[in-house]
Amino acid sequence: MKKIKQKILESKYVYVVLSLLFMMIISSLLSPSFLTLSNLITILRQASILLMLSLGLTAVVITGNIDLSVGSCAALTGCICAKMLVADVPVIAAMLISISIGLIIGVVNGFLVGVIKLPSFVATYGMNMVASGLAMIVMNGGVIYGLPAKFTTIGIGYVGSVPIPIIISGVMCLIVYILLQKTTFGRNVYMIGFNIQAAGYSAINCLGTLLAAYAFCGVTGALGGTMMTARLNAADAGMSETYGLQIVAAVVMGGTSLLGGEGGVVGTVIGAIILTIIVNIMNIVGVNSNWQNFAVGIVIILMVWIDIYTRSRRAKKLI
């Protein structure tokens, strides 16, 4: 019993779960309508898109790198998808093409980081510029709306009483969880994050793993982008702007360390939900939307600080 108790306390997720509970209590105190079933489902549905966007990033962050281009990758692929749909391209084809564009963006990121050896934040920050610029070119300054119902179902439909985006993200989470925790690929992702040099000396295919992680990040970015477009039933070049920072925040909030090697999907799920609650409650209370970015900025810095601080304390304990 004592052992279990200790194990729970030592687990990193304790703090993540506790902060989720804390957020929920605060929120229900601030607004009586927070704890209604419909609001909770709304939160989950909003969180599902953010979650999808953060899934691939989780893998990239575990390798000890970062991808700052996920947001604009989502916008670009969402816009391309919408553009194709209004041009009567079949839904499946449009989605597949969008996803492959996400894949390409991811591979290019991986190439810049793994082969050219640019620091990942510089390379992907540049890619962020490129992708959002391309989205602007695709949309030519306009907005597309009125998409086929077959497509928008994935954003606004239900199976029984469960919204479809929650199902899609849920399934994807499960896949990523298995991929990261239960496969040789996932193991190598973690090993690279722990120590990429040692991984190289252990004959692990570092470049391939890194490319795959980035490619995967591009794919989830694209999936998130199409889901976002379906949800909004519209697309414009700036549609993912509010998500840009939240994606990174969701990952670090979930306890995945920027130093690499630690964290996982479970944390990201909770992180995405917490962030959505923060934004949701600010909307309910009626705070100026500019404060939201302010808050997310502070959350990021705070979470990274907590991570590094607790880590150095744990390291000291060892000595």
Binding site: F121, L245, L258, N293, G297, I301, V304
Partner: peptide, 10 residues
């Protein structure tokens, strides 16, 4: 980069 990404938004 992560600190200034945060403060960028702030």
């Amino acid at each position: 980069f992560i600190v200034t990404l945060g403060t960028q938004n702030i």
